[in-house]
Design a protein around this nucleic acid. Structure first.
Lengths: 252, 252
DNA sequence: CAGTGGTCTAGACCACGAA
DNA sequence: TCGTGGTCTAGACCACTGC
């Protein structure tokens, strides 16, 4: 069996039992950073959870919860009777429940938005089904062009329920949609997405500065807030040379 | 506050404490089925976890774990001080760690496979990086055409490490790759995927019976087994009119 | 056999939201 | 003030692995 890798104790000096941040989260974050920095090498076998808990002054369930977080992110692999190992190979980021606007900002690009259409209308069949409102109910229709460092990247079409009609064009050009919704006390908890591809229409080609008929990456999404209500339906298209989706799948 | 929805007790008659199947899993499965069948209506508020545990003869952590499974799947939403609610709106399936072959079978279609290329070769730069082997190391290169009910659906290119060279063309035409690997004692635990789009090449167009230059949905994936070793690198292209990816994102 | 992770219990205290 | 979920503890038994 592979010998266990002694986790540097100083990794966990940052654990603060008085902090409002949960202990399992503090531990998971510290360990994740150590793995990403390769201070804990790929493939190495970690110390068992009981002994780790003793060294850290944490109970076993707390340690387990921290490790499970990293298993779910695809960074660790555990086997009964064997132990816990760091996955070989590059660790990648993941599709998360963030907006494109924030994603771009975090990857060092400057996002800008142009509002193409902004209209109070009524829900068509698709929008009504996705948002769980009646056909013909008042909704807000948005079409935005999102650019990164000035290069057109995506056309974002969204339908929102009536209570977001106080969002202005100016706000939409300055911030991401999720930020604006959050500022109104609505935070997104769950989203169902479908990712596909199709050819660009003439209008899409013009907006994205590509030829009509070229491939587009498509994503349609319905998002729900923390009470389970549908608060957004979107149909987005992306330039595939500039954007793609990354995700990590874990068997559990 | 919304009144709580009394979970039908008979839903949980199937709980079997003697079964080797974990109790939290039995409960999660039973409840998921009840939600999908709308025996528990969308938006309804569930009974609190303590009382649920008492009624079922389970401890609170066990009940919590079952509920958390469904939160992670996007079926439930929980709020402190409020309670647990079923998400509104359609419940969708998810991208899971299964092969296309199994996916098609489960959705009632008949998958078939034609092996286009089968060669023992050496790892190029990309494959070596992804699989974590040396450049020039012996690997198995596969190209397969996957059809559903006789209609060409995807071209699957894969690179496997040396120890899978006993997989035959005949096996590949009869089963999915993951099934063959599992039969050899290798089960896939983690996979990193990137989903994008591009135009079809002439060869791809011919295989998939579409025009050269039409849009393709692309997926590249590196998969790891339960010891964290990379066991597969694949570059797949799909006909976007016949295939798309569904996923559920949850904020945690 | 000894060591590992997987499951389960019984209870405690806390933070948040609603009444 | 009360009920809810969120966190944490201390311990138990089991299943699987490798020696």
């Amino acid at each position: 069996m592979q010998p266990e890798y002694p986790l540097p104790v100083d990794l966990f000096d940052t654990l603060d039992k008085a902090s409002p941040i949960p202990l399992y989260y503090q531990l998971a974050t510290a360990l994740e950073q150590a793995i990403r920095d390769e201070r804990v090498p790929p493939g190495s076998r970690l110390e068992n959870e009981i002994s780790l808990g003793n060294r850290l002054g944490l109970s076993r369930p707390t340690v387990r919860r921290a490790l499970q977080e990293l298993v779910d992110k695809g960074l660790l692999v555990r086997r009964r009777g064997i132990g816990t190992q760091v996955v070989h190979g590059r660790v990648t980021r993941n599709v998360e429940l963030t907006s494109l606007y924030e994603d771009l900002g975090q990857s060092g690009q400057t996002p800008t938005t142009r509002v193409i259409a902004y209209e109070l209308g009524t829900a068509d069949d698709t929008a009504a089904t996705e948002l769980g409102v009646a056909v013909g109910a008042p909704v807000l229709h948005l079409t935005r062009l999102r650019c990164a460092d000035g290069v057109p990247l995506a056309v974002l079409e969204n339908t929102l329920p009536e209570d977001f009609t106080d969002i202005t064009r100016e706000e939409l050009e300055a911030r991401g949609l999720y930020q604006l919704m959050k500022a109104r006390g609505v935070s997104i908890r769950v989203a169902n997405q479908r990712i596909g591809a199709r050819a660009a229409s003439a209008v899409e080609g013009e907006l994205l500065e590509i030829r009509k008929g070229s491939p587009l990456l498509t994503m349609s999404r319905t998002a729900f807030d923390n009470s389970g209500r549908a608060v957004e339906y979107g149909q987005h298209v992306y330039r595939p040379d500039l954007y793609s989706f990354e995700l990590t799948l874990v068997d559990r």
